[in-house]
């Protein structure tokens, strides 16, 4: 039974954690893709920016959360979402709008977004230094150990406090996004514009508003994803290049321009990563007595070492581009 607990801790929980983070990130990327028609490479740095804002606010008011019984970082998240949304709109105004007005190819916008990536990275590193910092400034990270009601399960299932916040916030964000896209006027206009920009414009939808709203949603979601990631581990300013690949892989797996697909894709990539680095020998060990003698299991049966984790999203990306470039859910943009 201990092996099963180990499996739950190392695959189910950590897979859902990275899956949720990738999912929220990929939704932002896919929304931008469906409205603006380019791959926004600065998204991972918007995530870092959101987490950095939370870090700044938490350092400024370390005791604010204690009165409400939540970690200060979680309390500061809405404020950081607002700031990141404002940043996203500002970036669009300064950098992308003039390029769009010139009528450049989408790939020029991609290069522009790489420039924005470097600008954000430089700014964040300039102010935060290059080391990692915990978002739990004054609070203590609670760790819950749930003992399983089975015989022989001595090791408990371990969940940390930020992981619980992560699951709750992910569900809230996904439901809110679903309601927004399906029920509100703006959300419907957004979907219309993603389907057919010319027709949407002809039927009186203000495209500038839609673009701004898209950036606000993407910025807010990026702030959530970055903060949750930094809560779970630590805040590091140089995460972006390692986040970009899984997030884009998730967006493409789900079908670009397809928010629900991006959520599914995020979990696919997250679980694939944890399953690939999981040492399968642990699960096979209980059966080692019943295995034939010639079959000697090596002690490390992981598919890839942890240091090669980044290979997994790339492999998924290549596989999906080869066999099903529209993604699992038939995205619109190829």
């Amino acid at each position: 039974m201990n092996e099963l607990v180990f499996f739950i801790n190392n695959v189910v929980i950590s897979g859902s954690v990275s899956g949720s983070i990738y999912a929220i990130g990929a939704v932002g990327v896919t929304l931008i893709f469906s409205i603006m028609r380019f791959a926004h490479f600065a998204h991972a740095d918007m995530m870092t920016f959101g987490a950095f804002m939370v870090l700044l606010l938490t350092t400024a008011f370390p005791a604010a959360g204690a009165s409400l019984g939540v970690p200060t970082a979680v309390l500061m998240l809405p404020l950081a979402m607002l700031l990141t949304a404002a940043l996203a709109v500002g970036i669009d105004k300064i950098f992308y709008k003039p390029l769009r007005a010139h009528g450049v190819k989408p790939i020029v916008l991609v290069i522009g977004s790489l420039g924005v990536t470097l600008i954000l990275q430089g700014l964040i590193r300039l102010f935060s230094g290059t080391g990692g910092q915990s978002l739990y400034v004054d609070d203590r990270k609670e760790i819950f150990r749930l003992a399983l009601p089975f015989e022989g399960a001595r090791a408990p299932v371990v969940v940390t406090e930020p992981q619980i916040y992560l699951f709750v916030i992910t569900i809230v964000a996904v439901v809110a996004l679903h309601l927004f896209l399906n029920r509100s006027r703006l959300g419907k206009a957004m979907r219309a514009m993603s389907d057919n920009p010319e027709l949407a414009q002809a039927s009186g939808i203000n495209t500038n508003t839609i673009v701004a709203v898209t950036w606000m949603i993407a910025g807010a979601l990026a702030a959530i994803a970055g903060t949750l990631l930094s809560l779970d581990v630590t805040f590091k300013p140089d995460l972006s290049f390692f986040l970009l690949l899984p997030i884009f892989a998730a967006a493409i797996v789900g079908g670009v321009g397809h928010p629900y697909g991006a959520i599914a894709g995020g979990f696919v990539v997250g679980f694939a990563e944890t399953l690939a680095v999981f040492n399968w020998n642990v699960l096979l060990r209980p059966f080692s007595d019943s295995l034939p003698a010639w079959l000697e299991l090596p002690s490390n049966l992981a598919f890839v070492g942890t240091e090669y984790k980044i290979v997994v999203p790339f492999f998924i990306l290549v596989a999906i581009l080869v066999w099903r470039p529209t993604g699992l859910f038939k995205g619109k943009v190829i």
């Binding site: 450049v104 420039g115 990536t117 600008i119 290059t130």
Partner: peptide
């Protein structure tokens, strides 16, 4: 940190060139 400023300059250069001298 001063060396990080070079990241910023490269990023600014890319965006500026794309906009003003494509």
């Amino acid at each position: 940190r001063a060396l990080q400023a070079r990241v910023l300059v490269i990023g600014l250069l890319i965006t500026m060139v794309l906009r003003f001298a494509p």
